[in-house]
Design a binder for these strands. Structure first.
Lengths: 307, 307
DNA sequence: ACATCCATGTAGCGATGCTACATCGTCAGT
DNA sequence: ACTGACGATGTAGCATCGCTACATGGATGT
C-alpha cells in the first residue's frame, strides 16, 4: 500500500473525478488513472467503477479512502511536530475569505503574522454565492465561512470547524429614517419597510422569513445584493433597510445607523473551515490562532461600541 | 517528508546502526545512508551524528523518529481496516516463543489458525537467556515473553504488552520425597533443600531470594539449567527440587509431583510483546486473539487440575 | 601498526512515474 | 441519429529516483 497512491485515492474521494485530481496535483489524467490502477491491483479489489462519462468510488474505494485520510492526518501531524520541534512554522498557508471579514479582520491578522519568520499567507477573496464552502477546503488550507448559528452543513464532511465569531446582524437605516432614534427594533417595526435583500438561498433570508412570520405579513424586497458595500450605499440613498453585520462592516458613514433587532435571533456564525489533515500543520494552526484572537478582539471591541 | 524515508529513520531509532537497518530492510548500507541523508536535507536539520564507529540519533532525530512511528501505525491501521473490509487477514505473521509455552500452547493455537484462509504463521523458538525480549520485536511480529508480575521492563519502550497468562510456579519434587505428601509447601520447608536453579539473571531467581529471606538462610543451588526438560529429569533423579511452571510443563511423569508454594508469591507473567504498528494488522490481531483464548483455557483447565 | 568495522561517498543501472498522444465510451445539442 | 466535447484509459518513450557495487575514510581494539 503506497502512501502516494492512497493520497491520490483520497483526493479522488474528495474531488470526484480523475481529471480534477490530476489538475489539483499537477499531473495528467493518464498518470492518475495509472496509479489508481496500480493501487487497485495492490488492494486486490475494484475501487472505482464507471458511471456515465466519469467514475465513482465503490464502497471498498470509500473505505480505503477513509483510511487514506487518517494516514494523511498522521503524516501531517508528523510535519507539525517537526515544525514545532524546530519552532519554525514552515510553508505557505492559503486562505480564502468572503469580502466583509476580509476587509475588516484580515489586515490586522496578516500584519501580526508578518512577525512569524518563514510563514507566508496567501489570501484570496471569493464571491460567497459562487460555490459551496466545503468544496473549497480541497483547494485552500483555510476557508472563512459564515452561516446561521445551529446550522452547520459541513459538520458531516469530516471538516474541522473553528468558530471565530458570533456576529449580530443589525438593521441598517438611513440616519434620517423614522426609526433611527430607537434604541432597538422589533419585527413589527420592520414588516412595513422596504428591504434590501440578498440573492435567494443566502443564509440571511431565514431571518427575514422569521420577521415576516412574527410581523404577520410579507415584506417587500426591492433589490437583492450580495456585496455589502452596495447594500450600504443603497441604504444611505434611502432605497430601503437591510441587515448589516455589526462588526465586519468597517467604519460606517454617519448617514447610516445600525439598530439591534429584538425578538428575532439575528446573528451569523463566522467560522474557519479546515480539512483535518491540513489542520495539523503548525503553520496553519498559527494562522488559525491569530484569526481566533483577532476575532475575539473584534467581538469584544465591537460589542462595546455597539452597546 | 517521504514516508519510506521516515520509516527508515524509525528503523534506525530501533536498531541503532545503519548496517542493521540495511540488513533488516534488505538493502545495502550505502542505500540507507543515502536515503537518510536526503531525509536530513528535507528536514533541514541534522538527524544523526557520528559516535565512534557508528552513529546516534540527535534529539531532533529522535523527535522525528517518534512521529515516524505514528505514521507507521496509521499506515498499518489502514492495512488493517482494509483487511477487515475484505474480511481476509492477509500476510504472514512471525512469532517467537520460548520453549515451554511453545510446547504446550502453540500446537493448539496453530491448529486453530489453520482454519483462517490466507493466514500463515511462522513460529520459531529461541533460548530465552540469549537476548532481550524487546529487541526481538524488531524482527518478529509477536514475541512471547515471560517475566515476574509487576516487573514489566518493556513498558517504556512503547511496545504493546498483551497479557496471556499468570502462571503459578510450583515446586517440583520427586514422588519419593519427604515433602511429597504435603498439600502445599512454605519457605521454611524449602530452605533445607538442595535446589536446581536457573542461570544467573533469570527471573525465577527473585523467588528463590524471597524464600531465602523468609526461611532465614541461604539455599544450596546444585545445578543451573534453563531448559525445563533437563530440570525435570534432574528432579526425578533426586538431584534437588526446583520451580516448575504449573501449566506449561505438559504431561509430567508420575515420578514427579508439583506442590504449590504458600507464603511467597511465585508466579510468572506470560505476555505477548508486539510493536504498536504491527499490532494494528488484522492478521496479527487474529493470532493474538487465539493466543489469549488458548491461554485462558489453559489457565482454567490447568487451575482445575492443579487445585 | 594492522586488521576490522562502520558510515559514506561515486558511478552506473534498472524500476518507476510521468508526459504526450491515441482510443473508446458517454452525453448534449442540433 | 449525427456530431462534438468530455472524461477515462491505454501505449510509447523519457527522466528521475533508489538501488548495487565498489572505493574511501575515520574509529576501535588487538
Amino acid at each position: 500500500m503506497d502512501v502516494r497512491r492512497l493520497d491520490l485515492l483520497r483526493e479522488l474521494a474528495e474531488r470526484g473525478s480523475v481529471t480534477a485530481v490530476a489538475e489539483a496535483t499537477g499531473r495528467t489524467p493518464s498518470a492518475v488513472s495509472q496509479q489508481l490502477k496500480v493501487l487497485e491491483r495492490e488492494a486486490g479489489a475494484p475501487l472505482t467503477e464507471r458511471s456515465g462519462r466519469g467514475i465513482v468510488l465503490t464502497s471498498a474505494g470509500h473505505a480505503l479512502a477513509r483510511s487514506a485520510a487518517d494516514v494523511a492526518i498522521a503524516l501531517a501531524r508528523a510535519d507539525a511536530v517537526w515544525d514545532e520541534f524546530r519552532n519554525d512554522p514552515s510553508g505557505e498557508v492559503t486562505l480564502l475569505t468572503f469580502p466583509t471579514i476580509g476587509a475588516t479582520m484580515l489586515p490586522a491578522v496578516l500584519t501580526e503574522l508578518q512577525q512569524v519568520p518563514g510563514l507566508v499567507v496567501r489570501a484570496t477573496d471569493f464571491d460567497p454565492e459562487l460555490a459551496e464552502f466545503a468544496e473549497l477546503t480541497a483547494d485552500y488550507d483555510i476557508v472563512l465561512a459564515h452561516t446561521m448559528p445551529g446550522v452547520l452543513p459541513w459538520g458531516g464532511r469530516g471538516l474541522r470547524v473553528v468558530p471565530l465569531l458570533t456576529e449580530p446582524l443589525d438593521i441598517g437605516l438611513p440616519a434620517t429614517h423614522r426609526l433611527a432614534g430607537r434604541s432597538h427594533l422589533t419585527a413589527s417595526d420592520l414588516v412595513e419597510e422596504t428591504w434590501l435583500g440578498v440573492p435567494p438561498g443566502f443564509p440571511f433570508e431565514r431571518i427575514l422569513h422569521a420577521i415576516e412570520q412574527q410581523g404577520g405579513r410579507r415584506v417587500e424586497i426591492a433589490q437583492r445584493f450580495s456585496d455589502m458595500r452596495i447594500v450600504e450605499a443603497f441604504i444611505q440613498a434611502g432605497f430601503g433597510v437591510a441587515f448589516v453585520p455589526r462588526y465586519t462592516s468597517g467604519t460606517l458613514p454617519p448617514e447610516l445607523v445600525l439598530k439591534p433587532l429584538r425578538g428575532v435571533p439575528s446573528a451569523r456564525q463566522i467560522v474557519a473551515l479546515v480539512r483535518p489533515d491540513v489542520a495539523e500543520r503548525l503553520a496553519v494552526r498559527t494562522v488559525l490562532d491569530v484569526l481566533v484572537a483577532k476575532a475575539a478582539e473584534l467581538g469584544a471591541g465591537g460589542a462595546g461600541a455597539g452597546a
